[in-house]
């Protein structure tokens, strides 16, 4: 380690894990808040992006992994391109979501992680996303059948929603990809 390399305090395993998994040197964040100023979803977050980084520096694992913020972040990369210290905050958000899923901590947003898992189940079983069955499956899990049905019906009439999924034949490879993902999860 060179003399100028930012230090990770020994007792902060949370910070060390994130630095390792994301490859981002988030210790150099000096809280200028430029990331948060440009974040399009800041209003809806319980922690602003700069606060997320601060809590990581303070080893507040539960607070960060249980936040709404990590799920509300839309990965738009506005923060990442504006950070004067070249910290890729959007990439750190990805790392935090991965850790949150494995941690068993109750997620701050209920439906968003459910949506992602339904989406992945769709890929696993069909190889491609068939929008109609994705939405129906998601709605059956969240019991929110009435939201947006008007738009859905209009799209169907305009030929934007197809009743049958398109076919493919790469099923075996896709199963293998998911098998190794599931093995990794249980490690």
């Amino acid at each position: 380690m060179s003399q100028n390399e930012p230090v990770i305090p020994k007792e902060n395993s949370f910070l060390a894990e994130i630095v390792q998994a994301s490859g981002e040197t988030l210790q150099v964040c000096y809280q200028c808040q430029k990331c948060s100023a440009g974040c399009p979803l800041g209003d809806a977050m319980d922690l602003l992006p700069n606060q997320v980084l601060r809590h990581i520096q303070y080893d507040h694992r539960e607070k960060v992994l249980g936040s709404k913020t990590i799920w509300i972040c839309a990965s738009c990369y506005t923060c990442s391109v504006r950070c004067p210290n070249d910290i890729d905050i959007a990439r750190i958000m990805d790392t935090l979501r991965h850790m949150a899923i494995r941690s068993g901590i109750t997620p701050g947003e209920k439906d968003i992680p459910v949506f992602h898992s339904v989406f992945l189940d769709e890929i696993k079983s069909r190889g491609r996303i068939h929008e109609l069955s994705l939405i129906l499956k998601f709605k059956s899990k969240t019991r929110d059948f009435l939201k947006d049905t008007g738009i859905g019906w209009k799209m169907f009439r305009l030929g934007k929603i197809r009743l049958l999924p398109s076919t493919f034949s790469g099923g075996k490879e896709i199963k293998e990809i998911f098998n190794s993902f599931e093995k990794g999860k249980n490690r």
Binding site: T95, I101, H116, F119, R128, I129, F178, G184
Partner: peptide, 25 residues
């Protein structure tokens, strides 16, 4: 031929290796 879903945001929000593998295929 036989293209499959790139994994989109749901894969990269879930797991790094899974997201890479789905797109790389």
């Amino acid at each position: 031929e036989n293209w499959t879903c790139c994994g989109a945001s749901s894969a990269h929000c879930t797991d790094e290796a899974l997201a890479l593998a789905l797109a790389a295929r």
